[in-house]
Simulated scan of single mutants.
Amino acid sequence: MSIPLTSARWTHVALPCDDVDKTIEFYTSMIPLTVVARFRVDDGETVWLANDPRFQTPFVLVLVSFDEDKGHEQGLLKPFAHIGIEVPSRADVDAFAELARTAGYLHWEPRQMPDPIGYICALRDPDGNVVEIAYGQRVFDTVSAQLAQS
């Protein structure tokens, strides 16, 4: 289903990465994203990852690996800048943390933060970028409710 573009629309965040395959593995095994497109351009490779395609409001994480930057640190989102992922339960936060801890990707241990932050942990991708996993933050619900009122 295509939603007509009638005004500017938030669509993606693009992050450089050193090893595309290693970074894809992180985002598809540690975070519930799937590869929706992968293509080669003149000077590198681009991959589009998104949440489950059943969602009506897709948001895409674009990974870009430039040939000239191979072997150099690429991370941009650190130590606090991050990508936020909302999950349905505290147990999900704990499960993400355990999976990341075991794989060596845990950045922040799970912790309860004051409202509206909620219960969170964070993972660190292969390039050092931070991904926050949150329960109770209600970002999507809050924005949806505000849009419904306008």
Results as ranks from 00 to 15, higher is better:
V131M: 01
P79Q: 09
Q74L: 05
D69N: 13
H72A: 09
A91R: 14
C121S: 13
G136K: 11
H82F: 10
L76K: 14
L99M: 12
E73R: 15
R111G: 03
A95S: 15
N129G: 04
D69Q: 13
H82C: 10
I120M: 07
R124F: 00
D92Q: 12
P79C: 09
M113V: 05
Y135I: 12
K78A: 03
P110E: 02
L76C: 08
H107Q: 07
I85A: 02
Y135N: 11
W108M: 08
P110D: 02
P126K: 12
G75W: 00
V131R: 00
I117P: 00
R101G: 00
Q74T: 14
G104R: 10
W108C: 02
M113R: 12
K78P: 00
P110V: 06
L76T: 15
T102A: 06
P126Y: 10
M113N: 10
C121F: 04
R90W: 02
S89P: 12
Q74S: 12
A103M: 06
A91T: 15
I85Y: 07
H82P: 11
G136L: 08
V131L: 03
G136F: 08
W108E: 06
N129K: 03
T102N: 04
A122C: 11
G75F: 00
G136C: 10
D92M: 14
P110I: 09
C121W: 00
E98H: 13
E109N: 05
F80P: 00
E132A: 10
Y119T: 05
P88N: 08
V131N: 01
E86V: 14
Q112G: 04
A103G: 03
V131G: 01
G118V: 12
D94N: 13
P110W: 03
K70E: 11
T102V: 13
S89C: 08
Y135Q: 06
A103F: 06
R101A: 05
I133V: 15
M113Q: 09
G71E: 08
H82D: 09
E73T: 15
V93I: 13
P126I: 15
F80Y: 13
E86S: 09
D125P: 11
G71W: 13
G128P: 00
Y119L: 07
L76M: 13
A122R: 10
A134Q: 11
T102F: 01
L99T: 15
P114K: 06
A100F: 07
R111E: 04
G84W: 02
P88W: 08
E98I: 12
E86C: 09
L77P: 09
L123E: 01
Q112E: 11
D127N: 15
I120T: 14
E132S: 08
Y119G: 01
E132I: 04
A81D: 14
Q74E: 07
A134R: 10
A134P: 02
K70S: 10
P114Y: 02
T102W: 01
A97T: 14
D125W: 07
G118E: 01
F96C: 11
Q112W: 01
G71K: 13
C121I: 12
Q112R: 06
C121M: 06
E109R: 04
E132C: 07
F80K: 12
G118T: 05
M113C: 07
N129E: 07
E109A: 08
F96A: 14
A134D: 04
L123T: 03
A103S: 11
P116Q: 08
S89D: 05
N129F: 02
L99C: 08
P110L: 03
A91L: 11
I120C: 05
P114T: 09
I85D: 01
D94S: 10
